[in-house]
């Protein structure tokens, strides 16, 4: 006999009450990344082989800078959720799995900061 109520089973949130959050955010970021990825490809294709001045001028548009930051941040969040599942599925040594998961979170934040600050620096007029 289970001590869990039928409602608890149906809702399925577990003790932390956030079981659906991972799944849900992966979808939310996916939906947002559909138009953003198309925008990114359309923007990056004409920049093939461009020189520094051209790329800087492109990035100094507030619209471009905003969308690029949004793209990188959402991509990183989406990556992080996906890579977490990959690590959980394929790494069976507990300490190694945990180490990888923690490094993944740290790396995600670091890469996000580097990307965001680089874009802001260019967008706000620095070289």
């Amino acid at each position: 006999m289970s001590l869990r109520s039928p409602l608890a089973k149906a809702v399925g949130w577990g003790s932390a009450k956030e079981g659906a959050a991972h799944w849900w955010w992966q979808r939310i970021t996916a939906v947002a990344l559909v138009p953003l990825s198309v925008w990114f490809v359309f923007s990056i294709v004409p920049l093939a082989g461009a020189d520094h001045a051209t790329v800087v001028a492109w990035m100094q548009s507030p619209l471009v800078a905003s969308l690029l930051i949004l793209f990188i941040v959402l991509v990183l969040h989406h990556n992080q959720l996906g890579m977490q599942v990959v690590f959980e599925d394929y790494i069976h040594t507990e300490w190694l799995k945990l180490t990888c998961l923690i490094l993944l979170k740290f790396a995600t934040v670091l890469i996000g900061l580097i990307g965001t600050l680089s874009i802001l620096k260019v967008a706000l007029g620095g070289r």
């Binding site: 520094h52 001045a53 990556n79 890579m83 990959v86 990307g115 600050l117 070289r127």
Partner: peptide, 26 residues
Amino acid sequence: GVFLAIGTLALVYWVLAIASGAEEFQ
């Protein structure tokens, strides 16, 4: 997806190069 996660590093590397100046970017 895993391959694209690695590609994100390349994208941020490129963005960082833009912010680092013309010589690095080249």
